[in-house]
Computed example of a mutant assay.
Amino acid sequence: MALDAALVKAFTPTGVLRASINLGNPILAKAGPPGGDPTGVSVDLARAFAGRLGVPVEFVVFDTAGKSVQAVSDDKADIGFFAIDPLRGASIAFTAAYVLIEGCYLVRDSSPITRNEEVDKAGVTVTVGLGSAYDLYLSRELQHASIVRAPSSPTVVETFVAQNIDVAAGVKQQLELDAKKHTGLRLLPGRFMVIQQAMGTPKTRGEVAAKALHLFVEEMKATGFVAGALVEHKIEGASVAPAT
């Protein structure tokens, strides 16, 4: 993938590739040591793309997906790593997905709810992480259940327990991890959505830049880079998205 000077400038108007990183999804990124850079699959991809451009990388780190998305939408970051969603697509040009993640429901053992299809009923309350992919999705899809928004994805189970909410929704691995801190909780079988994690850049950077980023992601999938990063960071429950 050839990147000429004009394309490098489109991605890095400040001379540095500013990568928006969301720490609210532990599958893709985690905080690094004090004063150090974050780690994870998305961080590895950002470094690789900066290397392709021949520029330094700067990580702009956030605790929620919503803040991370906003940074790219506002041209305060040059690339980001998000779940594909039409609402976000108004200002961000997405690549195809590089990783697929399951969105699941968590309930108490005593809950009468046993299937995903039973969640969307009058009187049922679901808690989600504010601005997350599953917040956007369920805000469109749920017709009868009500939604309570936790401050971030990592605080969903905490909010679910503290406020005695009926259902917690989120990334399967995050729910499993948080559920271990409590007793009497269970995941519903299956999933309510597949979260397509992609790279994105502001649409203001132009169609040529968007195409170049898409080709980069496809190359990283085809060469095994993404699969290798998942293994290196010991990520389970996520899979490399198919080629497009």
Rank of each mutant, 00 (worst) to 15 (best):
A93E: 04
N22W: 11
V99S: 02
T127C: 13
P13F: 14
S146W: 06
A243C: 09
S152F: 01
Q174L: 15
G24P: 07
L213G: 04
R191K: 15
L138I: 06
F62Y: 14
V16W: 07
T14Q: 13
A210T: 01
V60W: 07
S42C: 06
L130E: 13
A83I: 08
E118L: 13
F160G: 02
F62S: 15
S153Y: 04
G206T: 05
K180T: 08
V156P: 03
E158D: 13
G89T: 05
L185T: 03
D74I: 08
F59C: 01
V161F: 09
S152N: 02
E117R: 14
L230H: 01
Q174R: 01
A46Q: 01
H144R: 13
L138V: 05
V167P: 01
F81A: 00
A5M: 11
V240R: 03
F94G: 00
P242D: 07
K221C: 00
Q143A: 15
G15C: 12
A198E: 00
S139Y: 10
A222Q: 04
A50W: 13
N164R: 14
A198G: 00
G89H: 13
A2Q: 13
E118K: 09
G200H: 00
R191H: 12
L188E: 10
G170I: 01
V128I: 14
G66C: 05
T114P: 11
H144G: 03
R18I: 15
K67F: 08
A31N: 10
A50N: 06
L177M: 06
L3D: 06
S146V: 02
S152P: 00
K234Q: 14
E236L: 03
P26T: 06
A179T: 05
K234P: 01
E117W: 12
K67G: 10
L100W: 10
F160P: 05
S239F: 08
L188D: 07
D109C: 08
L53H: 10
I165M: 02
D4A: 10
L87D: 14
E219Q: 14
E141F: 12
H144M: 10
K30F: 08
L130G: 08
I165A: 02
V194S: 10
P86G: 04
I101F: 04
T159D: 08
V167Q: 03
E236G: 05
L215Y: 07
G36D: 12
D120F: 07
V55I: 05
V217A: 00
E118T: 11
N22H: 07
S73C: 10
A145H: 04
P34Y: 12
T125I: 09
Y98I: 01
L3S: 06
V161W: 11
R88V: 02
G15M: 10
S132W: 04
R140N: 15
G80S: 09
R205A: 08
S68L: 04
T159A: 11
A198D: 00
S42E: 14
T125R: 15
M193N: 13
A133L: 10
K9T: 15
G224N: 04
S68H: 06
P151C: 02
I147F: 04
M220E: 09
Y137H: 14
N22E: 09
M199P: 04
G200Q: 01
G54D: 14
F225H: 03
A93C: 03
G131M: 05
T223Q: 07
L185Q: 06
F81Y: 13
Y98A: 00
D85Q: 09
G51M: 07
S152L: 00
A241N: 03
D63Y: 09
I21Y: 11
